[in-house]
Design a protein around this nucleic acid. Structure first.
Lengths: 209, 209
DNA sequence: TAGATTGTTAATCGATTAACAATC
DNA sequence: TAGATTGTTAATCGATTAACAATC
């Protein structure tokens, strides 16, 4: 059983390891990874140990081996298809994003209620939501990126779930209420900025920190 | 002392409360907020209790009062100015974002190495990074949104810190190494999608969940 | 009053750190 | 060998839940 906290750490390790690999290194140590990630060496060793990843006493860990193990966890066998819903500011940015491939994902379609969006040149086909089911079935999509305005987010999310979506990356500033089997991951720029300022002590009641 | 976990919960309460207020409600109960947020009623009461927020036994909590207390924590006395660095896909989306005001923030300027970006019509002035210090000083900026490409993210972040930035909302897929006093908050779409898929069980070793 | 809800204390659970033996 | 590093067990710390008295 891997907790959400541990998952986040594993993702950090992977980013750090990819960087070290790119720098030409072949092996690394728990304290080096600690430098890279800010996670304590003990916790790093414990995480690896739980996953059954062995290092060499005195010799550290092989970067390639670690990456293989992490890939077994995060890398999917099949390329996973995702869809994007909402072509406003953020949606348009995400449709032009080029990093899907390297995470073994593929953005197969975008959706918008405004049919005029179909005119513009986007790197993926654009439909209205009427075609969602079709696309979900054809491409076995289970994850959607939701980037519609606040007022229509809940309604659109319901519609996504009704049509087979099980995971939503939600950019709308709304707490979505959905059936328990649906996983939602919120990305909210304002909330992140607010928390950053809060922890910087930029506020009235500084003594509460 | 308020932990990061607790801060996140408080932000969720605020979102839920704003929604309930908009629906015309005047008071609420720990179990209603639990329905909205997915956080247990006991923990909600404990959080409020720690902040010194009192409800009425049997009568619940006043929404307006709760929002006032949360505003004392998250709402800043002065409007906080932020800057945006990098006008690529995501940067361009964020510069057109309209939600800063309602979080009592103000995006005062954007920066890009490419001077041709200055031509385009953006709602804020666009400079090259040479002007950063000037803007930081003039507008007392301590937080920056970093949306530059991966390869220049570390270098740009260093430059931001050298010029007075203490908090960075980082959209580049890089683990930034910065002095301890600098706070970094990462937003990485691919990482979030990967974790979503991981927890949905979309992977090879399903038995490890 | 009876019932519902808060608020607090104690108990539990989970995550991290400390300590240190194993060993390369 | 001596020194460095892993890997594991025990200890600590922190967060959440359970229990229940207080009280509206």
């Amino acid at each position: 059983m891997i907790s959400n906290l541990q998952t986040r750490r594993l993702q950090k390790y992977r980013m750090a390891l990819l960087r070290l690999k790119k720098m030409g290194l072949k092996k690394t140590f728990s304290h080096s990874l600690s430098d890279e990630t800010g996670i304590s060496p003990e916790l790093i060793r414990k995480d690896f140990s739980i996953l059954g990843i062995r290092g060499k006493r005195r010799g550290g860990y092989e970067i390639e081996g670690l990456l293989d193990e992490l890939k077994k966890l995060f890398g999917r066998v099949k390329e996973q298809n995702v869809v994007l819903v909402g072509l406003g500011n953020i949606g348009s940015a995400l449709v032009n994003y080029e990093n899907y491939r390297q995470s073994n994902m593929h953005l197969v379609a975008a959706f918008d209620i405004d049919p005029s969006k179909r005119q513009r040149k986007y790197p993926v086909p654009v439909y209205t939501l009427d075609n969602l089911r079709e696309v979900v079935d054809a491409f076995e999509v289970s994850v959607a990126i939701l980037a519609v305005p606040e007022f229509s987010a809940q309604e659109t999310a319901n519609y996504l779930v009704e049509n087979g979506i099980r995971g939503i990356l939600n950019f709308a500033p709304v707490l979505l209420k959905l059936p328990g089997h649906v996983l939602v991951n919120n990305i909210n720029v304002m909330i992140e900025l607010e928390r950053l300022m809060f922890h910087l002590g930029i506020r009235q009641n500084a003594e509460l920190v």
